[in-house]
């Protein structure tokens, strides 16, 4: 077992591509160390990417935000600019684990851990976030929903590392929100969750909408029917009812220790509805 701390992305990609055996990328470590403790993984190489230049920064660009792969969720919560434009994404990131875990965990790690219940992912999917990936063949950008392919599995090729998560600048009259259901008030994994991202026209009619559900399928679900249910409407009771119904209908959940099929189905609709109400208000809708 080796621990290395590369200083450049090129070096990191090279180390990763050239490694034999199991390699693990360490940013926040809040998933990796738990899996190591449980004996589920014994990596031959631990690649700590936190010393790579720029990876621990949130950068504002003309296009939007670039959130480095080593940016802790606590740091995201401290960025007024990010919170101002993407409150739903930040509140999702701020729900992962405890304050202690917040100080370490990253949304990139949350995405790459590829848990269907990952807290930040539905919000990122709803936000239309992109992942900037560095690899032996250079850099590429993909939609975040294309990264996890199933529980614990990603589409990243050998040697590839997510460098940053990219969020667009906001159009006027836009708002997003994220809600999850947990039995306690903190320290839980989402039993079911919903992220909603809306843009309105000047009359308060929904122009564009993205709704994503977590923990109701092997990967986060982007609910197309929900977009249809919202676009062209003000968020009146009928629209909300319809949204809840299509979200419940889109679920393909399982029974497990955290919840039942019936519960997840029902609550997915409730959360989507509540998150949409918040997102709508944030977008200036009345």
């Amino acid at each position: 077992m080796r621990y290395i701390r590369p200083l450049s992305m090129e070096d990191a990609v090279g180390q990763l591509a050239g490694s034999s055996g199991t390699a693990a990328i360490l940013a926040g470590g809040s998933d990796l160390l738990v899996r190591m403790k449980g004996g589920f993984i014994e990596p031959d190489l631990i690649l700590d990417i936190k010393a790579i230049d720029g990876l621990s920064e949130i950068r504002e660009t003309a296009e939007g935000f670039s959130i480095g792969a080593a940016v802790s969720c606590a740091l995201m919560g401290e960025s007024a600019a990010l919170k101002g434009e993407w409150p739903g994404v930040v509140e999702a990131a701020k729900l992962i684990g405890s304050k202690q875990v917040q100080g370490r965990c990253t949304i990139t790690g949350n995405l790459c851990n590829a848990s269907p219940a990952a807290d930040s992912v539905p919000a990122l999917v709803a936000a239309g976030a992109m992942a900037l990936i560095a690899g032996p063949a250079g850099r590429r950008t993909v939609a975040v929903e294309a990264v996890p392919t199933g529980p614990g599995k990603t589409s990243l090729a050998k040697g590839e590392i997510i460098e940053a998560i990219l969020l667009d600048r906001r159009a006027p009259r836009s708002g997003d929100a994220y809600l999850r259901f947990i039995p306690r008030t903190e320290m839980d994994i989402a039993v079911v969750s919903a992220g909603v991202n809306l843009t309105l026209d000047e009359q308060g009619v929904v122009k564009s909408a993205r709704v994503a559900l977590g923990a109701v399928a092997p990967t986060v679900l982007l609910v197309e029917e929900a977009t249809e249910a919202l676009i062209g409407r003000k968020l009146d009771e009928a629209a909300l009812e319809r949204l809840a119904k299509v979200c419940s209908g889109a679920c393909r959940p399982i029974d497990d220790k955290r919840g039942t099929v019936e519960f997840r189905r029902k609550v997915a609709g409730v959360l989507a509805r509540r998150a949409a109400t918040t997102a709508y208000a944030r977008a200036g809708g009345k």
């Binding site: 039995p183 306690r184 008030t185 903190e186 320290m187 839980d188 994994i189 497990d256 220790k257 955290r258």
Partner: peptide, 29 residues
């Protein structure tokens, strides 16, 4: 009363042997 329980799978194995899924009350509860 509200959340703590041992959950066994059909295989007879304990599903939640940790503080994440064996939910004792936290301060904000």
């Amino acid at each position: 009363a509200l959340n703590e329980e041992y959950i066994y799978g059909k295989d007879g194995r304990l599903q939640n042997p940790g503080f994440l899924d064996y939910r004792i009350p936290v301060c904000s509860d």
